[in-house]
Structures are given as C-alpha cells and as structure tokens.
Write a protein that binds this DNA or RNA. Structure first.
Lengths: 199, 199, 199, 199
DNA sequence: AATGAATGAGCGTTCATTCAT
DNA sequence: GATGAATGAACGCTCATTCAT
C-alpha cells in the first residue's frame, strides 16, 4: 500500500506524474501499467518496485492530484484588506487553473466514482473537501469579523462556494467549448457574497 | 448502436435496468456483460441480440438514466402562485430523489468521465443540461415577469442552481453519511433566490 | 446428411445457390449460417430444416459446384471432325468460363483443403476428377483411333491436361490481373497435343 | 505484423513451426491460438508477445512455408552438362519432397483461398511464383543457348512446368494414395521438354 | 535497482444450433 | 413449413502481475 522509501525516491514522482498524464489521457481503466511505465521511461517491472499494484498506483496518483492545494486562500487569512474582493480574485485564479488543465477534470470524475468502491479513496477525498471547507470557512469568518459580511453561518457559505466550483466543473467538462463558464461562476459567487455583505 | 424493434422490446428495459444496477454496483468497467446478462436473467448472447456491444449498452443506459426528467418543473410554469416557494419545494423534491438513489450517482461520474472519449455521450449530456437550463430559466423568468424577482439574467440564475445541484451531488457522494447536505443545498438556493427577490 | 425430399424442394437449390454465393464472397468459415439464410431470403431456422448442419450445407454446396459438368467434351466423342482442333476449342471455352467466375475459384481451394479432414468431400472430388479424366481419356483415344495422334497412353495425356487446368487455375487466382494466362494455357495444351500428333 | 527482434528470437521459429503443424492438422480456422501455444510449449499470451494477432501469425507462417526454395534449380544454371536431364532430375527431387510433406499441401490451398481477402498474402504468393518462374525461365533459356532446345519462348515453358507442378499437387492431394502421380508428372514434363528439343 | 520474458485469469464477442409457437 | 428468440460453447485477445537474472 505504500511506496518504498528508497534512495532513488525520485522514481516515485516520476512514476506518479507519468501515471497522472496517462490516466488523464486514457482514463483509469484503459490506461495500462505498460502505458504508465512507458510514459515514465521505465519498465513495467520497475513500476511494480515502487507501487504494489495498479490500485496502489491509482491511490497515490489521487493523493498527488489532491496535493495542489487551494491557491492562496491561506494568503487571504494573513493579509489585510477587504475579504470579498480577495475571494473574488482567488475565484478568478482557481478558475483559470481549471481552464488550463481541463483534461484533468475527467480523472477527477473517475476518482469520485471510485470512491464508491474504495473506502480509502473516499476518505482522502473527504479529507480534501474538509480542509478546503475549513479554510474557506475561516476566510468567510474573517470577513464577518472584519464587518464586511453579515453574521451568517460561515461554514454554509464555504460549502456553497465549494459546491459551485464543483458544479461548474461538471458543466464545464461536459461543454468545454463554452467560454462563458468562468464569468458565470464568478458572477454567481459575487452574487452570493453580495447577498451576505453588510451594505 | 440500436436495439431491435421486436415484439420482445420488453427485453430492452429489462436489460437496461439490469445494466444500470450492475454498473452502479461494480462500475462501468468491472461490470461484465455476463454480470448484466445474469442480472437480467438472460444469457450473454441474448444481451447481444438487443445491444450491439458493451459501448452500445452503456450509451443506452446513459439515455435511460437521463430520462428521469426534471421533476415537476414544468408544473411551476403553468401553475399560478409564487414562483420562489415553488422552486424551493421543487428543490426539496429533487434532492430527496437524489438521496434515494445515491448509488446511481457513481454511474453519473463515470458517464461524465466517459464524455471525454465518446462524443455521442458528451452530446447527450450537453443536451440534458441544456434542456434543464432552458426550463429552469423560464421558471426564473416567470418570477421576474410576475414581479417576484429583480430583472436579472434569468439564465445565469438557472445555471447557478444547476451548478449547485451538481456540486452538492459531488459533496454528497463523497460523504454520503452526512445528513446535512440537503438543507445546506436548500438554504443556499434560498439565499440565492432571496438575493434577487424584490423586497 | 441429406436434404429432405419435401414438396417445397425448391428451397434446396434456393439455399444452395445462396450458400455458394456467400461462400465465394466470404470464404467457408467467415460465411455464417445467418449470411446464407439472409442471402436465401429465409430464416436461419428454415435453412436447418433442409440441411442438418453447416457441414452438411457445405457438402451439398460442393456437390452443386461440381455438377457443372465438363463443357461439351461429350460432344467431341460423338461428332465427326478433327479431335485436336475440337479439344483446343473446348480449352478456350472452359478457360473463358473460368475467367468469368474467377471468384468461385477461391471456394475451390477451400474445398480441396477441406478434403483433408472430411473423407466424404475427398471422395466426391476424387470422383469428379475420375469422371473428368475418363471422359478426356476417351477423347484422346478417339484421336488416336482416328489416326490423329500417336499411339500414346491416352490416360496420361488426359491427366496432363487436367493438371494444366488446375495448375493454371492456381496461377490465375494468385495473379488475377495478368491477362496472359488463358493464352499460355491454350498454347501449352497445343504444344502437348502437337507433340503427340502424327505429322 | 512484426515479430519482435529480441534475444529470444528463437521463440519465433519455435512458434512458427508449431503453427504450421497445427494449421496443417486442423486447418487455418479450426486451429486456435491455444492450440498453437500448446504445440509450441508456451502460453497463449506469450505467442501474442511475438505475433500481433492470428492474422499476423498466419502471414508469417505462409512466409515460412514459402521459404523452402526451389531445390537446386540454381545449381543447373552454374553447372555444365545437359539441361534437360538435369531438369528431369530436379523434377524427381521436388516431387519427392512434395510426397514427404503431403499434409502441408492442405495449408497451401488455404493460403491460396486466403489470398482473395488478404492482399499482402496474395503479394507474397505472387512474388514466390515470379521468382520460381524467373529461375526456371533462365534454366530453359540456358538449354536454348546450349543448343538443346529449339528457340521457343523460355518463359512459356517455365510457366507450363510450374502449372504442372501445381496441378499435380491438386490431383495428388485429392487422391493421395495413388502412387502414380509422380511418374505421370515426370513423364508429362519429359514429353514437354522432348517436344522442344532439337532432335 | 532494474528488466525482459512469461503467463493466468478473464472479458467481449460470435456463431452454430435448438425449440416453442 | 416457417421463424423469432434464445443460448452454450468457444475463441481471440488483453492485461495486471511475477520472477529469474
């Protein structure tokens, strides 16, 4: 279940990156271990040196893809200035990142689907959303504390924003050529924040 | 790509229902044609009598799962009464349905992922969302016309609502034991509608 | 092993002709019973009403294709006139027939190959060649008797002519676009007959 | 379409020989990849390591069976002595070889039949016959140059001889227990060569 | 540490054949 | 006599996984 802590632990990210690329291109199932090995410039057997089996590889690929963090959400917490506008900037930033790696979204859906059968995957995804939610919640709370927002339940707003991101992901993915998603998403979140703003 | 139009066209729903059950339980890829046949109480060869191949079966299974319509959204259009409260009722209804068929969500994610490789699947999903969006848009527009809502872009609100549904789906699916999703979703949509309401 | 002698025995040639067409087009193995049934305008089950199984159908298809006789070889026996020139005319005639149904040659090769595994097929082919040989032998003999040919072994010449036909069949089939086969065949047989002619 | 060029390229002839044996015994279609693998003492998957698919295997089996060359026909070209007698010796030699590997003839017919559907197979067979014809043609031409034969078209005689070989193959194959084919073939070719000899 | 070579286990698909109507 | 519907039995092919070197 876990990569070996070898000297050439450089192999692990090498393999994981190859895996993510191949998974995104061909889908979790059509991607073969051969594909991954080839993309990593290694032999199949070598991949098995670092990952127990394909499930293991998928699991760590998920972890890797979940590591990308939440943009500079942390920055908002420590910076001065108006929270709302900083959130809206952050939305732009995240949405732009999404737009750039649109292909990667499809792995996301496969990971979600996998959660149904693999508890450890579900747990990681849950943990990811919890952290996300927690962080976003604190940001909203800061806005409340600073007097920008009404005294609403910060957590509810955090969840709403996350749901909007995920929901627009779906719409974006199914109709990737429609360029309006980004502004629709931004406007919706703005509307939401406006509605809890104090004046 | 096409089921036969024979007398025993009862076979087709029989197989499709079996397929949906098996797909939901095992995932699109781990579900074998044997599994589907067995679940349908038929032989494998018989399944092939009605569906060209597994891809064909998956495609029509998608169509079936997309056929469930949009609740009584149409009802709102023709009924009298306040739009906002009717929308909120409808949200409750749809969300309850989702809660009941939580397992089915996982197929949904697989279908989304599949859209990347199979244009005809992407098209059907797009069409589904377009109809959904169109209908919801008309409902919002009715609210505007009736003087309930400000003169906002109805379509943007419609998309926002759909995105919220999809986004909460994701959250729900990854953490199915959390009972609060439904009310969080309902509250968020209420917040949204309140923010465009006229008083 | 044998077609039923039913009232609608018109079905039998109907099926056999369809079978020959399909066999020629797709090969004995790739041709399915469905193909044959469809080509005959009947249902699969009906084909089984008249032929026990596919092997049976192939066997009777072989018989049918062997029934085409040996051109007007018999005519030479009863006619007056020079034998040699009549044989050469007959060669032209047969070779032209071959040219017209070039596709059919491929079934021929499949039948030959099948002879290895199916004694009853080998027997029919043997019988076919024996009759052919016998008839041709008599024609040569007539030429000897008439004083056209030297007193050679008529049977050897008959076999040689048959072998030349079969051999040119192979060459023709493998290089069907070469138009010279017919004249090469005719010239070779002429050379052979000249070499046994008396002046 | 292509065997791998690895160290264990010993596998390739191993598999091809097994394939030829199985193909001859069961026919191209009834022979399964499992049969071939088993005959080669390997697993099915290993066969697929060296041959892309069954078609590929058949194609290379054809090449192998076509590689056996044309006896010492080349020897006649460089040797001194009478051409005619050397040809007749060669006929005996080739015919004996044919007699020994009578079973293999049946694959031959299947290959011919296959030429109809597979252009690359047709091409190889054509090439085979062309080389054969070219070589034989030169031998005849040498006989003409040496003053043994009349100044006939060497190529026509070459084709006639090839046709006779192929034709007798057919007859031999359909009636393998008849021991007279060899002498009939030899005599016919002798007759042909006599008829173009100069005295 | 690395891999070429090998394979067991399965899966999607086809097709000759049967049988109730 | 005719057939629509159904299926058992295979077969070609793939792929995750192992292991000797």
């Amino acid at each position: 279940m876990s990569p070996k802590p070898n000297v050439s632990a450089e192999r692990i990210p090498q393999i994981l990156n190859a895996a993510l690329a191949v998974f995104a291109a061909k889908g979790l199932n059509r991607a073969t271990m051969s594909d991954v090995a080839e993309a990593a410039g290694l032999s199949k057997a070598t991949v098995y040196l670092y990952f127990k089996d394909k499930d293991d590889l998928i699991y760590f690929a998920l972890l890797t893809s979940l590591e990308q963090g939440f943009g500079n959400l942390e920055g908002i917490l420590v910076s001065g200035g108006e929270v709302k506008s900083q959130i809206l900037d952050w939305v732009q930033e995240i949405a732009s990142q999404m737009a750039e790696s649109a292909t990667n979204l499809s792995i996301g859906f496969e990971f979600y689907a996998l959660a149904n059968r693999r508890p450890e995957i579900r747990e990681r995804i849950q943990k990811y959303f919890q952290q996300y939610r927690q962080l976003l919640s604190e940001v909203i709370q800061k806005g409340i504390t600073q007097g920008e927002f009404q005294s609403v339940e910060a957590d509810s707003i955090a969840v709403a924003i996350i749901a909007l991101f995920e929901g627009f992901n779906v719409l974006w993915f199914t109709e990737p050529n429609d360029a309006s998603w980004l502004s629709l998403l931004a406007n919706t979140i703005k509307l939401l924040l406006d509605s809890i703003s104090l004046n």
